[in-house]
Amino acid sequence: MTEKRSSRPGGRQAAVRVKTAKKRSVSSARWLERQLNDPYVAEAQKRGFRSRAAFKLLQLDDKFRLLAPGRRVVDLGAAPGGWTQVAVERVRSNSSTGGGQVVGLDILEMDEVPGAITMQADFLDETAPGRLKAALGGPADVVLSDMAAPTTGHAQTDHLRIMGLAEAAYDFAEEVLAPGGAFVCKLFQGGAERDLLDRLKRDFAIVRHAKPAASRADSSETYLVATGFRGGAAKRTDEDNRDGE
Rank of each mutant, 00 (worst) to 15 (best):
V41F: 14
V86D: 03
T118C: 13
A166G: 05
P9T: 07
Q189V: 14
R230M: 13
R194A: 15
R216G: 12
S28V: 06
E221R: 11
S25Y: 10
R194K: 15
F64P: 13
V91C: 12
L66E: 00
G244W: 02
E33F: 06
D75H: 06
K46I: 00
L66R: 03
Q45T: 01
Y40W: 10
R216Q: 14
D240L: 15
K133D: 00
R230E: 10
P212C: 07
L144K: 04
G81Y: 11
T157A: 14
L197D: 00
V176K: 01
S7I: 04
Y170C: 08
A155F: 12
A149G: 08
E3T: 13
F188P: 09
D125V: 06
A234Q: 02
R92F: 08
L66N: 04
R47M: 11
G130K: 10
D146H: 05
P212N: 11
T157F: 01
A192E: 14
E126W: 00
L177Y: 09
L66C: 07
A155Q: 13
V103R: 05
A214V: 06
K186F: 02
D61S: 08
A178H: 05
E126Q: 11
D218K: 12
R131D: 09
R24H: 00
G231Y: 01
A214E: 02
D61E: 04
R92Q: 15
A116C: 11
A79T: 14
Y40A: 03
R242Y: 03
G181A: 03
D141P: 06
G244D: 07
R34Y: 05
V102I: 02
D122L: 13
L60V: 13
K46W: 02
R52W: 12
D240V: 02
Y40L: 02
A134H: 08
L60H: 05
L60Y: 04
A54N: 11
V88N: 09
K186P: 03
T84C: 06
T237M: 04
Q35F: 10
E239Y: 04
A182F: 04
G48D: 09
A78G: 12
R208I: 00
D218S: 14
T84V: 14
L76H: 11
